[in-house]
Simulated scan of single mutants.
Amino acid sequence: MLLRSVETGVVGAPMAGGPTTPELVAAVGDAGGLGILAGGYLTAPQLAAAIADVWDATSRPFGVNLFVPAQANAYAVGPGELTGAERADAVAAYRDTLGEEARSVGAEPGEPRAGDDDDWERKLDLVVRERVPLVSFTFGLPSTAVLGELRRAGAETLMTVTDIDEARAALDAGVDALCVQGTCAGGHRGTLDPVKQPSEADLVDLVAAVRAETDVPIVAAGGVSSAERAAEVRAAGADAVQVGTALLLTPEAGTGLAYRRALGDPAHERTAVTRAYSGRLARGLETEFVRRHDAHAPAAYPEVHHVTVPLRRASAAVDRPDLLALWAGTGWRTAQAVPAATVVAGLAG
Protein backbone atom coordinates (compact mmCIF):
# COMPACT_ATOMS: atom_id res chain seq x y z
CA MET A 1 0.00 0.00 0.00
CA LEU A 2 1.09 3.55 -0.76
CA LEU A 3 1.23 4.72 2.86
CA ARG A 4 3.51 1.82 3.79
CA SER A 5 5.92 2.60 0.97
CA VAL A 6 6.68 6.23 1.91
CA GLU A 7 10.47 6.19 2.15
CA THR A 8 10.82 8.70 4.97
CA GLY A 9 7.56 7.91 6.74
CA VAL A 10 6.62 11.62 6.54
CA VAL A 11 3.34 12.92 5.12
CA GLY A 12 2.79 16.61 4.36
CA ALA A 13 -0.52 17.73 5.85
CA PRO A 14 -3.22 19.22 3.62
CA MET A 15 -3.47 22.76 5.00
CA ALA A 16 -6.47 24.44 3.36
CA GLY A 17 -6.70 28.14 2.74
CA GLY A 18 -3.32 28.64 1.08
CA PRO A 19 -0.37 27.09 2.96
CA THR A 20 -0.34 23.76 1.10
CA THR A 21 0.56 24.64 -2.47
CA PRO A 22 1.25 22.29 -5.40
CA GLU A 23 4.92 23.27 -4.98
CA LEU A 24 4.89 22.11 -1.37
CA VAL A 25 3.17 18.83 -2.25
CA ALA A 26 5.76 18.17 -4.95
CA ALA A 27 8.68 19.14 -2.69
CA VAL A 28 7.55 16.78 0.08
CA GLY A 29 7.16 13.98 -2.43
CA ASP A 30 10.51 14.59 -4.09
CA ALA A 31 12.13 14.49 -0.63
CA GLY A 32 10.84 10.96 -0.09
CA GLY A 33 7.64 11.88 1.71
CA LEU A 34 4.03 11.98 0.59
CA GLY A 35 2.39 15.34 -0.07
CA ILE A 36 -1.37 15.79 0.24
CA LEU A 37 -3.05 18.63 -1.61
CA ALA A 38 -5.74 20.55 0.31
CA GLY A 39 -9.02 20.45 -1.61
CA GLY A 40 -11.06 22.21 1.07
CA TYR A 41 -12.46 25.67 0.17
CA LEU A 42 -11.46 25.26 -3.48
CA THR A 43 -13.96 24.96 -6.31
CA ALA A 44 -13.68 21.88 -8.50
CA PRO A 45 -11.98 23.88 -11.32
CA GLN A 46 -9.48 25.35 -8.84
CA LEU A 47 -8.71 21.89 -7.50
CA ALA A 48 -8.34 20.53 -11.04
CA ALA A 49 -5.74 23.22 -11.79
CA ALA A 50 -3.86 22.44 -8.56
CA ILE A 51 -3.82 18.70 -9.34
CA ALA A 52 -2.47 19.45 -12.83
CA ASP A 53 0.26 21.61 -11.30
CA VAL A 54 1.32 18.76 -9.01
CA TRP A 55 1.40 16.29 -11.90
CA ASP A 56 3.56 18.78 -13.84
CA ALA A 57 5.93 19.34 -10.90
CA THR A 58 6.66 15.78 -9.81
CA SER A 59 6.45 12.16 -10.83
CA ARG A 60 5.92 11.12 -7.21
CA PRO A 61 2.54 9.91 -5.94
CA PHE A 62 0.46 12.33 -3.89
CA GLY A 63 -2.92 12.67 -2.26
CA VAL A 64 -5.89 15.04 -2.22
CA ASN A 65 -7.86 15.90 0.91
CA LEU A 66 -11.58 16.64 0.75
CA PHE A 67 -13.92 18.09 3.37
CA VAL A 68 -17.00 15.90 3.85
CA PRO A 69 -20.07 18.18 4.05
CA ALA A 70 -22.70 17.60 6.72
CA GLN A 71 -25.23 16.33 4.17
CA ALA A 72 -22.82 13.59 3.04
CA ASN A 73 -21.60 12.55 6.51
CA ALA A 74 -22.41 8.89 7.21
CA TYR A 75 -21.30 9.15 10.84
CA ALA A 76 -24.05 9.25 13.43
CA VAL A 77 -23.96 12.79 14.85
CA GLY A 78 -24.91 12.96 18.51
CA PRO A 79 -27.25 15.38 20.27
CA GLY A 80 -26.31 19.00 20.83
CA GLU A 81 -25.98 20.34 17.29
CA LEU A 82 -27.92 23.51 16.60
CA THR A 83 -30.40 23.17 13.76
CA GLY A 84 -32.89 25.32 11.85
CA ALA A 85 -33.93 28.71 13.20
CA GLU A 86 -31.95 28.28 16.41
CA ARG A 87 -28.77 27.83 14.41
CA ALA A 88 -29.51 30.77 12.11
CA ASP A 89 -30.23 33.04 15.07
CA ALA A 90 -26.99 32.05 16.82
CA VAL A 91 -24.93 32.75 13.69
CA ALA A 92 -26.68 36.08 13.10
CA ALA A 93 -26.00 37.15 16.68
CA TYR A 94 -22.34 36.22 16.33
CA ARG A 95 -22.08 38.06 13.03
CA ASP A 96 -23.41 41.21 14.69
CA THR A 97 -20.52 41.18 17.18
CA LEU A 98 -17.90 41.31 14.40
CA GLY A 99 -18.88 44.49 12.57
CA GLU A 100 -16.52 46.90 14.28
CA GLU A 101 -13.49 44.64 13.84
CA ALA A 102 -14.36 44.00 10.21
CA ARG A 103 -14.59 47.71 9.47
CA SER A 104 -11.19 48.25 11.13
CA VAL A 105 -9.64 46.43 8.15
CA GLY A 106 -12.06 47.83 5.56
CA ALA A 107 -14.43 44.86 5.39
CA GLU A 108 -17.87 43.69 6.46
CA PRO A 109 -18.75 40.28 7.94
CA GLY A 110 -19.75 37.77 5.28
CA GLU A 111 -23.07 36.01 4.73
CA PRO A 112 -23.52 32.63 6.48
CA ARG A 113 -24.24 30.46 3.38
CA ALA A 114 -25.86 27.57 5.22
CA GLY A 115 -25.83 24.27 3.36
CA ASP A 116 -22.58 24.89 1.47
CA ASP A 117 -21.30 21.48 0.34
CA ASP A 118 -17.80 22.65 -0.71
CA ASP A 119 -18.41 21.41 -4.28
CA TRP A 120 -18.39 17.85 -2.90
CA GLU A 121 -19.87 15.87 -5.81
CA ARG A 122 -17.81 17.58 -8.50
CA LYS A 123 -14.62 17.12 -6.49
CA LEU A 124 -15.35 13.41 -6.09
CA ASP A 125 -15.85 13.10 -9.83
CA LEU A 126 -12.59 14.98 -10.35
CA VAL A 127 -10.37 12.79 -8.15
CA VAL A 128 -11.83 9.69 -9.79
CA ARG A 129 -11.30 11.08 -13.28
CA GLU A 130 -7.77 12.25 -12.51
CA ARG A 131 -6.82 8.90 -10.92
CA VAL A 132 -5.46 10.58 -7.81
CA PRO A 133 -3.43 7.91 -5.95
CA LEU A 134 -4.76 8.72 -2.47
CA VAL A 135 -7.86 10.57 -1.28
CA SER A 136 -8.16 11.63 2.35
CA PHE A 137 -11.22 12.93 4.16
CA THR A 138 -11.84 15.31 7.04
CA PHE A 139 -14.97 16.52 8.93
CA GLY A 140 -17.13 13.51 8.13
CA LEU A 141 -17.31 9.89 7.05
CA PRO A 142 -18.07 9.22 3.36
CA SER A 143 -20.60 6.57 2.46
CA THR A 144 -19.54 3.03 1.62
CA ALA A 145 -20.64 3.77 -1.96
CA VAL A 146 -18.20 6.68 -2.24
CA LEU A 147 -15.36 4.63 -0.74
CA GLY A 148 -16.15 1.76 -3.13
CA GLU A 149 -16.13 4.06 -6.16
CA LEU A 150 -12.72 5.38 -5.20
CA ARG A 151 -11.38 1.90 -4.64
CA ARG A 152 -12.56 0.84 -8.11
CA ALA A 153 -10.76 3.89 -9.53
CA GLY A 154 -7.53 2.69 -7.92
CA ALA A 155 -7.37 5.30 -5.15
CA GLU A 156 -6.47 4.49 -1.56
CA THR A 157 -8.65 6.19 1.05
CA LEU A 158 -7.42 7.80 4.27
CA MET A 159 -9.88 8.87 6.99
CA THR A 160 -9.10 11.45 9.68
CA VAL A 161 -10.24 10.26 13.13
CA THR A 162 -9.73 11.64 16.62
CA ASP A 163 -10.71 8.74 18.89
CA ILE A 164 -11.25 4.99 18.93
CA ASP A 165 -15.00 5.17 18.22
CA GLU A 166 -14.41 7.20 15.07
CA ALA A 167 -11.67 4.78 14.02
CA ARG A 168 -14.06 1.84 14.38
CA ALA A 169 -16.75 3.58 12.35
CA ALA A 170 -14.26 4.37 9.57
CA LEU A 171 -13.02 0.78 9.50
CA ASP A 172 -16.58 -0.53 9.36
CA ALA A 173 -17.24 1.76 6.38
CA GLY A 174 -14.27 0.26 4.55
CA VAL A 175 -11.53 2.91 4.54
CA ASP A 176 -8.05 1.73 3.58
CA ALA A 177 -6.09 3.71 6.18
CA LEU A 178 -6.52 6.02 9.18
CA CYS A 179 -5.05 9.41 9.98
CA VAL A 180 -5.12 9.47 13.79
CA GLN A 181 -5.15 13.10 14.89
CA GLY A 182 -4.08 14.01 18.41
CA THR A 183 -4.95 16.96 20.58
CA CYS A 184 -1.75 18.93 19.80
CA ALA A 185 -2.55 19.26 16.08
CA GLY A 186 -2.73 22.68 14.48
CA GLY A 187 -5.74 23.68 12.43
CA HIS A 188 -9.12 22.02 12.55
CA ARG A 189 -9.81 19.00 14.70
CA GLY A 190 -11.09 16.30 12.39
CA THR A 191 -13.98 15.09 14.53
CA LEU A 192 -16.68 13.30 12.54
CA ASP A 193 -19.29 14.87 14.83
CA PRO A 194 -18.94 18.69 14.62
CA VAL A 195 -20.09 19.34 18.19
CA LYS A 196 -18.20 16.55 19.92
CA GLN A 197 -15.33 17.42 22.24
CA PRO A 198 -12.25 15.68 20.79
CA SER A 199 -10.23 13.21 22.81
CA GLU A 200 -7.49 14.74 24.95
CA ALA A 201 -5.44 11.52 24.90
CA ASP A 202 -1.75 11.78 24.10
CA LEU A 203 -1.03 10.91 20.46
CA VAL A 204 1.15 7.93 21.44
CA ASP A 205 -1.65 6.44 23.54
CA LEU A 206 -4.25 7.13 20.86
CA VAL A 207 -2.16 5.48 18.14
CA ALA A 208 -1.51 2.45 20.34
CA ALA A 209 -5.23 2.07 21.06
CA VAL A 210 -6.14 2.25 17.36
CA ARG A 211 -3.32 -0.11 16.39
CA ALA A 212 -4.72 -2.68 18.82
CA GLU A 213 -7.94 -2.65 16.78
CA THR A 214 -6.62 -2.91 13.22
CA ASP A 215 -3.71 -3.69 10.92
CA VAL A 216 -4.50 -1.01 8.30
CA PRO A 217 -1.89 1.73 7.78
CA ILE A 218 -1.95 4.47 10.42
CA VAL A 219 -0.72 8.02 9.91
CA ALA A 220 -0.18 9.86 13.20
CA ALA A 221 -0.82 13.61 13.27
CA GLY A 222 -0.60 16.33 15.89
CA GLY A 223 2.38 18.06 17.45
CA VAL A 224 5.03 15.97 15.71
CA SER A 225 7.90 18.45 15.50
CA SER A 226 11.03 16.36 16.03
CA ALA A 227 12.58 13.09 14.90
CA GLU A 228 12.36 11.86 18.48
CA ARG A 229 8.60 12.45 18.66
CA ALA A 230 8.14 10.86 15.24
CA ALA A 231 10.01 7.78 16.47
CA GLU A 232 7.76 7.58 19.55
CA VAL A 233 4.54 7.49 17.56
CA ARG A 234 5.99 5.03 15.06
CA ALA A 235 6.97 2.78 17.96
CA ALA A 236 3.35 2.96 19.16
CA GLY A 237 2.16 1.57 15.83
CA ALA A 238 2.08 4.39 13.28
CA ASP A 239 3.37 3.72 9.77
CA ALA A 240 3.99 7.42 9.11
CA VAL A 241 3.65 10.84 10.69
CA GLN A 242 1.75 13.76 9.20
CA VAL A 243 3.13 17.26 9.71
CA GLY A 244 1.75 20.68 8.86
CA THR A 245 2.97 23.35 11.26
CA ALA A 246 6.59 22.30 10.63
CA LEU A 247 6.10 23.17 6.94
CA LEU A 248 4.42 26.57 7.35
CA LEU A 249 7.65 28.60 7.07
CA THR A 250 9.15 26.67 4.16
CA PRO A 251 9.63 28.66 0.94
CA GLU A 252 7.35 26.23 -0.92
CA ALA A 253 4.40 26.91 1.42
CA GLY A 254 1.79 29.53 0.56
CA THR A 255 1.78 30.95 4.10
CA GLY A 256 1.16 34.70 3.91
CA LEU A 257 3.69 37.25 5.13
CA ALA A 258 1.66 38.39 8.16
CA TYR A 259 1.08 34.75 9.11
CA ARG A 260 4.80 33.97 8.82
CA ARG A 261 5.74 36.94 10.97
CA ALA A 262 3.18 36.00 13.62
CA LEU A 263 4.64 32.51 13.94
CA GLY A 264 7.95 34.06 14.95
CA ASP A 265 6.51 36.82 17.13
CA PRO A 266 7.39 36.24 20.81
CA ALA A 267 4.23 38.15 21.78
CA HIS A 268 2.29 34.97 21.01
CA GLU A 269 2.73 32.81 24.09
CA ARG A 270 0.41 29.86 23.49
CA THR A 271 -2.03 28.16 21.18
CA ALA A 272 -5.74 27.76 21.83
CA VAL A 273 -8.55 25.61 20.47
CA THR A 274 -11.44 27.78 19.31
CA ARG A 275 -14.60 27.94 17.19
CA ALA A 276 -14.22 31.69 16.70
CA TYR A 277 -13.11 31.57 13.06
CA SER A 278 -15.10 28.74 11.52
CA GLY A 279 -17.61 27.30 13.99
CA ARG A 280 -15.52 24.12 14.21
CA LEU A 281 -12.88 23.51 16.82
CA ALA A 282 -9.40 24.38 15.56
CA ARG A 283 -6.03 25.10 17.16
CA GLY A 284 -4.10 28.26 16.40
CA LEU A 285 -2.05 30.97 18.06
CA GLU A 286 -4.08 32.64 20.78
CA THR A 287 -4.92 36.15 19.62
CA GLU A 288 -7.01 38.98 21.00
CA PHE A 289 -9.72 38.00 18.49
CA VAL A 290 -9.82 34.50 19.98
CA ARG A 291 -9.93 35.82 23.53
CA ARG A 292 -12.82 38.16 22.67
CA HIS A 293 -14.97 35.80 20.65
CA ASP A 294 -14.30 32.18 21.55
CA ALA A 295 -17.01 32.00 24.21
CA HIS A 296 -19.65 33.41 21.84
CA ALA A 297 -18.93 31.50 18.62
CA PRO A 298 -21.64 28.91 17.87
CA ALA A 299 -20.88 25.38 16.70
CA ALA A 300 -22.05 26.17 13.19
CA TYR A 301 -19.72 25.22 10.35
CA PRO A 302 -19.54 26.33 7.55
CA GLU A 303 -21.70 29.37 8.38
CA VAL A 304 -19.24 30.93 10.83
CA HIS A 305 -16.40 30.26 8.37
CA HIS A 306 -18.19 32.29 5.68
CA VAL A 307 -18.97 35.08 8.15
CA THR A 308 -15.30 35.54 9.11
CA VAL A 309 -13.65 34.97 5.70
CA PRO A 310 -13.89 38.66 4.63
CA LEU A 311 -12.28 39.76 7.91
CA ARG A 312 -9.41 37.34 7.49
CA ARG A 313 -8.81 38.19 3.84
CA ALA A 314 -8.86 41.90 4.54
CA SER A 315 -6.48 41.49 7.46
CA ALA A 316 -4.05 39.60 5.21
CA ALA A 317 -4.40 42.21 2.46
CA VAL A 318 -3.25 45.00 4.76
CA ASP A 319 -0.47 42.78 6.09
CA ARG A 320 -1.85 42.66 9.64
CA PRO A 321 -2.29 39.45 11.62
CA ASP A 322 -4.99 40.97 13.88
CA LEU A 323 -7.92 39.01 12.47
CA LEU A 324 -6.10 36.10 10.82
CA ALA A 325 -6.70 32.52 11.81
CA LEU A 326 -3.11 31.67 12.70
CA TRP A 327 -3.49 27.89 12.68
CA ALA A 328 -0.59 26.19 14.43
CA GLY A 329 0.10 23.12 16.53
CA THR A 330 1.64 23.16 19.98
CA GLY A 331 5.14 22.76 18.52
CA TRP A 332 4.96 25.92 16.41
CA ARG A 333 8.11 27.43 17.90
CA THR A 334 10.24 24.74 16.26
CA ALA A 335 9.08 25.66 12.74
CA GLN A 336 11.95 27.01 10.62
CA ALA A 337 12.31 28.88 7.35
CA VAL A 338 14.10 26.04 5.58
CA PRO A 339 13.26 24.04 2.43
CA ALA A 340 10.57 21.39 2.77
CA ALA A 341 13.13 18.72 1.96
CA THR A 342 15.09 19.74 5.06
CA VAL A 343 11.98 19.40 7.24
CA VAL A 344 11.20 15.96 5.82
CA ALA A 345 14.78 14.75 6.32
CA GLY A 346 14.87 16.07 9.88
CA LEU A 347 11.65 14.30 10.87
CA ALA A 348 12.75 11.10 9.20
CA GLY A 349 15.80 11.09 11.43
Rank of each mutant, 00 (worst) to 15 (best):
L192Y: 04
G279H: 02
A114K: 00
T271W: 14
L147K: 11
T160G: 07
A153T: 13
L257Q: 12
G110W: 11
L134N: 01
G237W: 11
T138P: 10
G244T: 09
Y41D: 05
T330W: 00
T245L: 14
T8R: 08
G115Q: 05
T308S: 07
V338G: 05
H268S: 13
W120F: 15
R95D: 07
A340D: 09
V105P: 07
D294M: 04
P310W: 01
E269G: 10
A209D: 10
A317T: 07
Q181K: 03
V6Y: 01
V243M: 08
A258C: 04
A345T: 13
P321H: 15
L150A: 14
G148F: 08
G39I: 07
D118G: 00
D202L: 15
A258F: 07
E86Y: 02
T287R: 06
P109M: 15
A316G: 12
V207P: 00
A38H: 05
A170Q: 02
C184T: 03
L247T: 14
T274W: 09
Y301N: 05
G140D: 08
A272I: 10
T255E: 07
V54L: 07
V175G: 08
F137V: 08
E156P: 03
G237K: 08
S199F: 08
L158T: 11
V77A: 09
A145E: 15
V207Q: 01
P217V: 06
A272Q: 12
A92L: 14
R131Y: 06
T342H: 10
T21Q: 09
A93Y: 04
C184L: 15
R312F: 04
V127C: 13
A185S: 09
R95W: 12
P339A: 11
G84S: 08
N65C: 06
R152T: 14
D193W: 10
R87T: 11
L257M: 06
Q181R: 01
H293K: 03
D119T: 00
A102I: 05
V290T: 13
A201C: 02
G148K: 07
W55A: 14
L24I: 07
E228L: 11
V91A: 08
T330D: 14
E286D: 13
A236K: 09
D119H: 14
D119K: 00
T334N: 05
Q197H: 15
L2V: 03
I218K: 08
A235M: 05
E86Q: 10
P22E: 07
G63I: 01
V216G: 12
V146C: 03
A38P: 09
A337L: 13
Q46H: 02
E269Y: 06
V343L: 06
R333E: 11
S226Y: 13
K123L: 15
P339I: 14
L324C: 12
R229G: 03
R312T: 07
E7C: 09
T308H: 07
G9C: 01
L247F: 14
